[in-house]
């Protein structure tokens, strides 16, 4: 009986958090839609850049303006589709301000606010993120749908099968969790380092290059490809897009999903560990 009651109050508590965060975000919706559209401008230059590159492929690989030209297995349409899909992966996995936010709370002593309340910091932040992301999807759907509709010709093979779509969706949800817990761990390191700017910066660079944000990881030469496959970063951008485009299929697709889930679990455990250990060191100055 009592446990049911506590569960109920827990849930109500988190629900309130969720609603506050939701409303917080809905305030700036107009600005936001325009901003999202602007964000596709770089994709426009990518379309023309790759168009020019694919047109100049040597005839030996089926290029010379022909339809059959491929770069690392990508046709021109695939390449553009990849960059478009990356914007979706990033909409799930990017966590602006998470690492620096946690570090700031630790440094300024604001963390006390969470310690004296019967709430858990990480859960709290997670719920905030979910709310913010949901609002983002709600508003960004319009510009995203518009851009994807205008660019539908680049998805040469049309919609993938329902099975692939399901795996794609799951990989996106996992990439959100992975992004969250990975960056939370970086933020929690500030219990020891206080200043994590450089750490966050190194992470940002690595992420940009090795997650597939900048280019499809298939372009990488063999030896470095192995390295990238060992890192969790590729699940933040490359993997969902690759699933959608059929670059990873069949059994490999499910293995990928499993490994991604394992990485999520790893960072959940790590963040819990850093949190309990960090609190022992924390002295709560200022605030």
């Amino acid at each position: 009986m009592t446990s049911a009651a506590t569960w109920g109050s827990e849930l109500r508590k988190w629900w309130t958090f969720f609603q506050i965060s939701l409303n917080e975000r809905l305030v700036y919706r107009g600005d936001f839609m325009l901003g999202t559209l602007m964000r596709f401008l770089p994709t426009l230059t990518q379309i023309f850049l790759w168009w020019a590159i694919f047109e100049s492929l040597p005839a030996a690989v089926g290029g010379a303006g022909g339809e059959g030209g491929r770069i690392a297995g990508y046709r021109y349409g695939d390449m553009v589709a990849y960059y478009l899909l990356i914007t979706i992966s990033r909409a799930f996995s990017s966590m602006p301000g998470l690492t620096s936010g946690i570090a700031k709370m630790v440094r300024s002593g604001e963390l006390k606010k969470y310690l004296i309340q019967p709430v858990d910091l990480l859960t709290c932040l997670l719920i905030q993120r979910v709310a913010h992301k949901l609002v983002y999807y709600l508003i960004a759907t319009v510009p995203f749908a518009l851009v994807f509709f205008l660019c539908r010709q680049f998805f040469i093979d049309g919609w993938p099968s329902a099975e692939v779509l399901a795996v794609f969706a799951m990989s996106l949800v996992l990439s959100f969790l992975l992004g969250f817990f990975l960056e939370a761990c970086l933020g929690l390191v500030s219990f020891w380092l206080l200043e994590v700017t450089s750490l966050a910066f190194i992470y940002m660079l690595m992420n940009f290059l090795l997650s597939g944000h900048m280019f499809p990881l298939d372009l990488l030469p063999e030896w470095s490809r192995w390295l990238v496959d060992c890192l969790p970063l590729k699940y933040l951008a490359y993997f969902p897009a690759a699933v959608f485009l059929g670059k990873v299929e069949g059994e490999a697709m499910y293995w990928g999903l499993l490994i991604e889930a394992a990485w999520v679990l790893f960072f959940v455990v790590l963040s819990a560990f850093l949190w309990t250990r960090g609190l022992v060191r924390y002295s709560g100055f200022g605030g």
């Binding site: 020019a52 590159i53 100049s56 040597p58």
Partner: peptide, 12 residues
Amino acid sequence: KLIYRFTTSIGP
């Protein structure tokens, strides 16, 4: 550098 592994020029 990666792109020029696959093509010789940008635009024919």
